[in-house]
Design a protein around this nucleic acid. Structure first.
Length: 576
RNA sequence: CAGGGUGUAGCUCAGUUUGGUAGAGCGCUAGCAUGGGGAGCUAGAGGCCGCGGGUUCAAGUCCCGCCACUCUGACCA
């Protein structure tokens, strides 16, 4: 391919809309353009990257026994009503009607469609296990799209669904996918980590996320400094040693704390540590008021709260409503006497159970209580693990201190069990002729997000540094002076030779100054750049430069193909 | 959804305070020159100043409403 035949609109300046590195570089290098918030056109170069990632995914899915098909984007509401998710999914789902007024949605995911297909077409355990997948667009009307391709409203995803007759078989399918995902992200040369995860609203129990390590990642992950434990922060359980009351319980006392609305303020006003403060957070959980008590220096883990309550939806309570409806002033709220104000579920984090002589809001603006003690001064409905794990907390497996990193979720695998097959009547006959719901798993990879994650992880001040396996082209070739006939002919000739040898090469045949072409090559980030200059004409020595290392070498023309084939192959198969 | 910011040429941004003929750099077109890191010179093209209303002799600028983009938070198989 020649640059003059392509559309590669590089930008010298950073578009004002882009904040994250990957967003900036993908725009500047002419890979993508924004059409609306969270919706992007893939330009020719970006499209080539996506296709390369898709092909790696496809090869590994096929190798693991997956079978590719294609499911529709426009899906009838009827199927979503069967699974019960039409009403649960919320405003994130794009909904539309056809001319007859029938409800449809743009598929945010495809469990319903695939389960429906399965229920119609598969009847016997003899046809299992079955691993069906597609690589297709997904649509989610994110409340807040951001970070360019990292969180879009339209994006490309590979989703595979496994169907098995029993748990043992599901375990095998799950393991195959787990291994395939490790191979895929290794082949993409990404620095990643598989972590235990919460399965969220999709249901099921066992779940792993594949996280590309990046400081800009939206998720925090914990991993153990000693053992293999690694988990999403929201999943990591917190263990504590229960303390006995060492001091005497002091008398409950009301103290004035004007203007002290935050834990920090209260602690400094009253000369105590923040961990001596009882923090009370109010939530609206499926329409009911719930308060969660944690130590002042901790964060509430809302996922754990949702899971404990078996809830669908959790929002922080509105402070005006709290004050107007119940007379509870946020900032001065606490568990003492709370039930007299309104019916409320009170949950306490395990640490709070042994928090004696604490400070807590008095439910009266400008006042706190001191010497607040559990049992004596307030009761909770349930003590449990409701806080977010922190760096240095003990590992739940071995007790060594946990470390924290940030990551970008590029893959997520779930054991679904029978949630969808039961709801939608996807049953099979087992060996005994008994009708049983098929056991499912689902396994997603964000393809466009993987592209962005790769850029996020691999760049320098000059631009992108593509891993060879997913670069839009392996090699860029150019002449220093395109108007010099000898150079141009040399470059064209070499370009054609490389192409015939099966090397993925792009020829920058523009009549631009060399500086422009150098800048573009660095910005776009081809792994190898070949420059035809005076030395090539006079001595037959061709310059090759590796983008990642900056290594510059000169090779005789005839030895280039062998050199490239050897080194590019090595680069593509090397793990990071 | 709440709170902040920004909308002026393809891109980055001045101009808005104090109303009075629409600006710069880069990019683009034509030409000159140059050819190892977005260099230079000459001449051009390019604007519903986000949209709608209002005030005024006069609005990019003042007032009201809306929209889009964006940041923080909440949310997120």
């Amino acid at each position: 391919m020649r640059v003059t035949q392509m559309l590669i609109p590089t930008l010298r300046e950073v578009p004002a809309e882009a904040d994250t590195i990957s967003h900036q570089l993908l725009l500047r290098s002419g890979m993508v353009r924004k059409v609306a918030a969270g919706i992007y056109t893939l330009l020719p170069l970006g499209n080539r990257v996506v296709k390369k990632i898709e092909n790696i995914v496809r090869e590994e899915m096929d190798r693991a026994g997956g079978v590719e098909l294609q499911l529709p984007i426009v899906q009838p509401a009827e199927l979503w009503r069967q699974s019960g998710r039409w009403d649960v999914y919320g405003p994130e789902m794009y909904r539309l009607q056809d001319r007859h007024g029938r409800d449809f949605c743009l598929g945010p995911t495809h469990e319903e469609i695939i389960t429906s297909l399965f229920s119609q077409e598969v009847n016997s355990y003899r046809q299992l296990p079955l691993l069906l997948y597609q690589i297709h667009n997904k649509y989610r009307d994110e409340r807040r799209p951001r970070f360019g391709l990292l969180r879009g409203r339209e994006f490309i995803m590979k989703d595979l669904y496994s169907f098995d007759k029993d748990e043992e078989s599901l375990e095998i399918s799950y393991r195959k996918m787990y291994d395939a995902y490790n191979r895929i992200f290794s082949r993409c040369s990404l620095d990643f980590r598989a972590v235990e995860a919460d399965s969220g609203a999709i249901g099921g129990d066992v779940s792993h996320e594949f996280m590309v390590i990046a400081d800009t990642g939206e998720d925090a992950i914990n991993f153990c400094s000693e053992c293999d434990y690694a988990a999403n922060m929201e999943k990591t359980p917190c263990h504590i040693h229960e303390k006995e009351l060492v001091e005497e319980e002091g008398p409950l006392e009301l103290v004035a704390t004007p203007e002290a609305r935050t834990v920090q303020d209260v602690a400094s006003d009253l000369q105590v540590n923040t961990e001596q403060v009882l923090k009370s957070l109010f939530y609206n959980v499926d329409g009911k008021l719930v308060v969660v008590l944690v130590r002042g220096d901790r964060l509430v883990n809302e996922t754990k709260v949702i899971n404990y309550l078996g809830a669908n939806r959790l929002d922080t309570a509105d402070s005006e409503e709290m004050l107007n409806n119940f007379g509870i002033p946020m900032g001065f709220a606490g568990p003492v006497g709370l039930r007299e104000k309104t019916a409320v579920t009170i949950l306490g984090d395990l640490e709070v159970k042994c928090l004696f002589n604490a400070v807590a809001g008095a439910n009266k603006t400008g006042y706190h209580y001191i010497n607040v003690n559990p049992q004596r001064d307030y009761q909770v409905d349930h003590y449990g693990d409701f806080r977010v794990a922190e760096e240095g907390d003990p590992c739940p497996c071995c007790g060594a201190p946990l470390q924290v990193q940030r990551g970008i979720e590029v893959g997520h695998i779930f054991k679904l069990g029978t949630k969808y097959s039961e709801a939608m009547g996807a049953t099979i006959l087992d060996e005994h002729g008994k009708e049983i719901p098929v056991i499912m798993g689902c396994y997603g990879i964000g393809v466009t997000r993987t592209m962005a994650a790769a850029v996020e992880q691999s760049n320098d001040e000059n631009g992108i540094i593509w891993p060879a396996a997913i670069s839009p082209f392996d090699v860029l070739i150019m002449a220093v002076n395109q108007r010099d006939e000898l150079q141009a002919e040399f470059a064209l000739n070499l370009y054609q030779k490389l192409k015939r040898a099966g090397i993925d090469v792009l020829y920058d045949d523009r009549q631009e100054r060399p500086g422009v072409k150098f800048k573009d090559a660095d910005l776009i980030g081809y792994p190898v750049r070949i420059v035809i200059g005076k030395k090539a004409i006079s001595e037959g020595l061709v310059e090759l430069k590796w983008r990642a290392t900056g290594e510059l070498i000169f090779k005789e023309k005839d030895k280039i193909i062998a050199y490239l084939q050897e080194n590019l192959t090595a680069m593509k198969s090397s793990k990071r």
